[in-house]
Nucleic acid binder design. Structure first.
Lengths: 236, 236
DNA sequence: GCAAAAGTGTTCAATGTACACCCATGC
DNA sequence: GCATGGGTGTACATTGAACACTTTTGC
């Protein structure tokens, strides 16, 4: 059939540009936050955008996403998951740009170091996921999609761990869920569920604060992010 | 920051080729089947592949997917959903090719017409999803991913409707679920669940066969594909 | 009248949800 | 000693799973 002949001459086809964009989430100040970057040039100059960039010809998509995170946020080894590919012909006024969006999760404690070194130098800033500035391109749509996916994932898997240090208290874990799902959870039910899932292990250390010390827990190794916290219906 | 300067000169970047591949599922002969196309040229000449092709510069990704379905399978207006984007640098020996995979569902009755006209002319063939030939490129991986997603979707949404004509019997619907989930379901529980979901409406027509006639049902309009049939755990 | 698919309810188990009090520490 | 967050169990409702017989038709 004719298509095969066409396929052979790969070079005949005009090629779009391909980027990766990475929505990086963290929790700070009891809020879900997203890292955005101020654009310095046309188009959408001075507007905020999701960090991203062009893929190299010899790197995988995931590698490109990880590289962007290092370059633009100075962080490494974070949870990274492909979200969706946005390819509307008019989404970038310069030329045809298809973007493969990823989302990433990082414990805010991990940010502290890099934050001090290149703070504001990069023109990047953390915004609360529920009060965003106007965004460049179709980035608002992408970001909203990412938030939906994050919520969904949180209910059905244990991705919450990616937003916490290795050791944490049960109350801290519950807060992660409450912040992202945007609703209060019942302490006893939450803990009962955790116990039944058998994904945590106690340490024998405690977090001491101003009140009664809280036992520290960590996730079991080899818990393949699964098993959920269904408490809201998301699809509509 | 330096990246913005780079971004401005979009043209400086080498561009990959971008294709869409579409995994088209249907149910025939009580099996889940997938449409594959025999390759006519290097690379992977004479091997079977998922239908797909290059995107045009002025069409959306979804449009490209729909167009491929029309060109390669002669069908239109089917359920189409973006699956995942595969971009390993070595997945195509010719050059860097990133493919945005979609999956599509079609009622086999809808195929009958086009089937007769261009059968075998296109070098395409329906394979049972569980007994595939060796596939070109990374298409086996893509296809397995599609099957997983289809199962998942079937449990949590009402996509099953896309594999049936507008009117169908409850037994036919149950068979769709059994074939895809690859397990027997209990007739009474299945019907009780359907009733509670309130997504079907009775017609006053019956399907007459060799035995007792079965009432025909259709899906309510505006049932946004949701609400599920959880009966197996999929993630692992 | 008999073979074959259509249709229909109840019981039990597991899971989810609501809810209130004592405990250990810092100050 | 008191304010504050840490920690724990029980009763009820909802959902899922197992299970068998009668009905209606074509032949």
């Amino acid at each position: 059939m004719e298509n095969h002949a066409k396929e052979y001459n790969v070079e005949e086809f005009e090629r779009p540009s391909v980027t990766v964009d990475v929505i990086l989430f963290t929790i700070k100040e009891n809020k879900l936050k997203v890292l955005l970057i101020k654009r310095g040039a046309w188009p959408f100059e001075d507007m905020w955008a999701i960090p991203g960039g062009f893929i190299s010809m010899d790197e995988s998509l995931e590698h490109a996403a990880a590289r962007e995170l290092t370059e633009e946020a100075g962080i490494e080894n974070v949870y990274l998951e492909q979200l969706y590919t946005f390819g509307d012909p008019k989404r970038d006024p310069r030329t045809r740009v298809i973007t493969v969006a990823y989302f990433a999760l990082v414990d805010s404690a991990k940010l502290k170091q890099s934050e001090k070194t290149d703070k504001e130098v990069t023109g990047s800033k953390w915004f609360p996921a529920d009060t965003l500035p106007n965004l460049a391109f179709d980035h608002e749509k992408i970001l909203k999609y990412a938030v939906r996916r994050l919520r969904y994932k949180l209910e059905y898997t244990a991705v919450g761990r990616e937003l916490l240090p290795t050791d944490f208290t049960l109350t801290e874990l519950q807060k992660v869920y409450e912040i992202i799902l945007y609703k209060k959870l019942d302490k006893r039910n939450f803990r009962k569920k955790l116990a039944s899932l058998d994904i945590l292990k106690e340490t024998n250390r405690y977090k001491r604060g101003h009140h009664r010390p809280a036992k520290l827990y960590s996730f079991r190794k080899n818990v393949e992010l699964k098993s959920g916290f269904k408490s809201v219906q998301f699809e509509k």
